[in-house]
């Protein structure tokens, strides 16, 4: 039976999504640069499910500075900014448990579908939410 499966596999689409390109580019960064210039096309990532737990989105206006999210966060992602009574999140540490979202009394935090977060600088703008 396994032979039949294997044989039919030859003619079906591979199970793996070929992200970011059909064939591995020599340099991924170079390839992404080309995508930006419009010289290459990106094979899109597999879409995320509706209730995906990605990078946490923060609504600064809503936040009342109660620090509940800081109390429950297991990974010490969240820093309190006492002067403004707001928070800053260091996403590089985040475990995407969304416990802070559950804890926030005013719904200032939410799960977003963003997950392409790799970076060489852990304090880059993309990895800092405030």
């Amino acid at each position: 039976m396994i032979l039949k499966t294997l044989f039919s596999q030859l003619f079906t689409k591979p199970a793996t999504n070929r992200f970011p390109a059909k064939y591995m580019p020599k340099s991924v960064l170079g390839f992404l640069g080309k995508v930006k210039e419009g010289k290459a096309t990106l094979v899109p990532p597999v879409p995320v499910p509706p209730r995906f737990r990605g990078k946490i989105a923060y609504d600064r206006e809503k936040c009342i500075g109660c620090q509940l999210c800081i109390r429950v966060c297991p990974a010490k992602v969240i820093e309190f900014l006492p002067e403004v009574k707001k928070i800053r999140m260091h996403v590089a540490r985040c475990t995407f448990c969304a416990q802070c979202v559950d804890a926030c009394p005013v719904d200032a935090l939410a799960e977003s579908p963003d997950f392409l977060l790799s970076d060489t600088d852990r304090s880059s703008a993309a990895l800092t939410v405030e």
Binding site: I2, L6, P49, R51, F96, Q99
Partner: peptide, 29 residues
Amino acid sequence: DTLLHLTWKVREQVLDLLEELSGNRIDYA
């Protein structure tokens, strides 16, 4: 290794479902 790839390919189905239900592929919280 053929069997490994076959098994892990079908394993994706349950991981996808876990991701659908929990929002995470692993460490479901």
